Computed example of a mutant assay.
Amino acid sequence: MDSSLAPAEHPETVNGALDLVLAGGPVVWLLIAMSVIALTTIIYKLVQFGMAGVGRSGNVEKAVTLYRNGNRREALAAVQSAGDPASITVATAIRGSLRTDVSEASVREEVERVATAEINTLKSHLGLLETIGSLAPLLGLLGTVLGMIQAFRAMEAAGRNVDPAILSGGIWAALLTTAAGLIVAIPVVAIASWFDRSILQVARKTEDAVTRIFTPDLTRRTESPVDEVRAAHV
């Protein structure tokens, strides 16, 4: 294919996209603004999740294993420099267990506070994505209704000299806003749902790790099976 044709095609594509936006009216411009806000928020959340180490829990498992084996200071060293919510919460629990001047109830309360704060940090700005995902289809539908009203008003004004092109042109321009609303909403809702599931997994892993810090390992056999049965009947 002749490369000299490419520059001529690009302006036509741009003009076609601009015509679609102009045909959609102010609702499409509003949806474009919402999509920009949503994209900025998504990028911010991805960077936040990456810096927080969401999905990486190897150091937490190592710390819990060391702690249950009696190596408390080594366990603290395994998580104290990490920045993910589970590591920060587990490190708080281990530091509290090393303090002899603080009761276990106070340590548990502080650990719960830290865990809640970390999870709430991960949840920040998700409400904005959920709002955009909910409003975008409604705005698209609103634009369609307004466009249909204009199309039928044009038909009424034309009287008996109705041109079918007037109606068909008004309808496709009206439906354009519904399509734009769905194009914005579908990926935003999907990505927001993924963020929610990821945060839920982090919360569950954090709760599991903290529980294992405060409770003994009852899955490990300390006696023979016969002795365990005998102890159960004493």
Rank of each mutant, 00 (worst) to 15 (best):
A75C: 04
D196K: 14
I32A: 00
V14E: 04
A33Q: 13
I132R: 01
V27M: 12
R160L: 12
S87P: 06
V162Y: 06
T65P: 07
T222S: 13
E110F: 13
R220T: 11
V64T: 05
I37H: 06
H10P: 00
A232V: 01
S124Y: 05
E74G: 07
N59V: 00
V54C: 09
E109G: 12
L129E: 00
A203T: 11
A185D: 02
P85G: 14
A203Q: 15
L128F: 08
W29P: 05
P216R: 06
R56L: 00
W29L: 15
S57R: 05
R204W: 00
V202Y: 02
T211R: 15
I43V: 02
G143L: 05
G53C: 06
V36E: 07
T178Y: 01
D217P: 02
T13I: 15
L20A: 15
E118C: 01
N161V: 07
L182M: 15
V229R: 00
A93G: 14
I88C: 09
A86H: 11
G53F: 03
G55P: 09
A17Q: 03
W29T: 12
V107N: 09
L176M: 14
T13H: 14
V145W: 04
I149K: 03
T206E: 04
A209L: 05
F49M: 09
L139I: 10
T89M: 11
T178R: 01
F152T: 11
E12R: 14
I183H: 00
A232S: 07
V111Q: 03
T215S: 13
L5C: 04
I186T: 12
T219N: 07
K123C: 06
V226T: 12
R56T: 13
L76E: 04
E109K: 13
T206Y: 03
G147Q: 02
R73W: 00
A231Y: 08
L182E: 12
T211Y: 15
S193H: 13
L138A: 15
D217K: 04
V184N: 06
A192P: 05
A77L: 11
L98V: 08
A151Y: 08
P216F: 15
A209R: 03
A165D: 14
E223P: 05
V234F: 09
I88P: 03
L141G: 06
R72W: 13
V28L: 06
G181F: 04
E228D: 12
D19V: 12
I43H: 05
L142P: 02
G70R: 01
D84E: 13
L141S: 05
I183W: 06
S35G: 07
A8Y: 14
V28N: 01
S57Y: 04
F49G: 10
A38P: 00
I186C: 11
A78C: 09
A158K: 03
I132T: 00
L141T: 04
R95L: 10
Q48M: 07
A38E: 03
V210P: 02
S224H: 11
T100I: 00
A203K: 07
Q150P: 08
G143C: 07
I94N: 04
I94C: 05
T116F: 08
I186H: 09
